Simulated assay, not measured.
Amino acid sequence: MLNIGIIGAGRIGKLHAQNIVAYHRNVKIAAISDLFYKNLSEWANGLGIENLTGDYKDILNDPMIDAILICSPTDTHAQISIEAAKAGKHIFCEKPIDMDPDRIKEVLNCVKEAGVVFQVGFNRRFDKNFRGAYESVREGKIGKVHVVKITSRDPEPPTPEYIQVSGGLFMDMTIHDFDMARYLSGSEVIQVYATGDTLVDKSIADLGDIDTAAVVLKFENGAIGIIDNSRKAVYGYDQRIEVFGSEGCITVSNEINSLAVLSDKNGVLSEKPKYFFLERYKESFINEIGEFIDCILHNKKPPVNGVDGLISVLIAQAAKKSLQSGKAETVYL
């Protein structure tokens, strides 16, 4: 039996807890820590989780706990990762590890020294549709990759309180797309050009951020990447990719709740995309934790490691620099 502790029981922490209980055998949630743990009793009891605490160190100091999930606020990820590695715990850390590359490197050094599994929460790699596209590209079915196009648009912008601590659009939202671009292209990003503005909610500009962006990537293998982001798509959660190559093209469209399409004299009507990321990526969240567990039990390397987390932050920083300079910026890996 693998004993897991979860640090942070907000939206994503609760999701992982529920998925572990429902879908992963031979795994027990031994404890959950959260600053507001006293409000979690009814929810935790419903999942059969008895041990709640307000101090994450209780989890790190428990010799019976084998691994942890870090689902706490971003500014705590690095410190908890370092402490967890020193305590010999295997670590699943939500993105980003930190907003400072030097701090991330410190984490990676501690993880390497401790010899523990360290996986970063880029869940989209575990989506069956995107993984199918990835496998087709790797098998050479579309030839040499020329262009990777990613559309990622949220249904609603986050709260001002969230934006203030998010690190900005590129670090919070586009970071998933940077990782997906590397994943699909099979190559590293060497240059970034970014432009953007506040077209959805002008109050976001007051917080020093943007809500709409377009990013052009140049890959080491010569391919080009194009990412477009918006904090608000009125029709739902818009998640599409296309990889174009010398011998073909592969696309992934939005998931919808029903494949039924109504055609009549007024036109053709189909369902809108799934509305929220928890719906769209439900299976991917289950799969990524399954992979983490499998890596621990079978001494395997995680499919998304700390270096992947570091590189995506470096690309996000270059994108922010490009937005400010109005020029293409080099990504220094």
Rank of each mutant, 00 (worst) to 15 (best):
F276T: 15
Q239L: 10
T53R: 04
E255L: 14
K141F: 11
Q317D: 13
E106S: 12
S136P: 00
V117G: 00
L259R: 15
P158Y: 13
A214C: 12
I104R: 06
E279T: 14
A31H: 10
C71Y: 00
A22Q: 14
I20Y: 06
F292K: 06
Y281H: 11
Y162V: 13
S166D: 01
S187K: 03
E113T: 14
R153I: 12
S166F: 00
D209N: 12
G245E: 01
N51R: 15
I6R: 06
V116H: 03
I29A: 09
Y275E: 12
V148R: 03
D75V: 11
S187C: 03
I6N: 08
I293E: 06
M173V: 13
H16W: 08
A114V: 04
G248K: 05
T195Y: 12
K105H: 07
D102G: 14
K128H: 13
A9I: 04
S136D: 11
K320P: 02
E283F: 05
V137M: 04
E242L: 08
I4Y: 09
N129S: 14
D206R: 14
D264W: 02
G196S: 03
A233N: 13
S263G: 10
P73H: 03
Y281L: 09
A214Q: 13
P160G: 04
G88M: 05
Q18Y: 07
S253P: 10
K282T: 06
I142E: 05
H24N: 10
M180C: 10
G121F: 07
C71M: 13
D98I: 02
Q119I: 10
I32C: 04
D209P: 06
K95M: 09
D55Q: 03
N129C: 11
R125T: 01
A22W: 02
V116P: 06
V216D: 11
I32V: 14
V107R: 08
R124Y: 03
G309S: 07
K144T: 10
Y134E: 08
V200A: 11
L199N: 13
F118V: 06
V243N: 01
L35V: 15
V192Q: 04
N299D: 15
K144I: 01
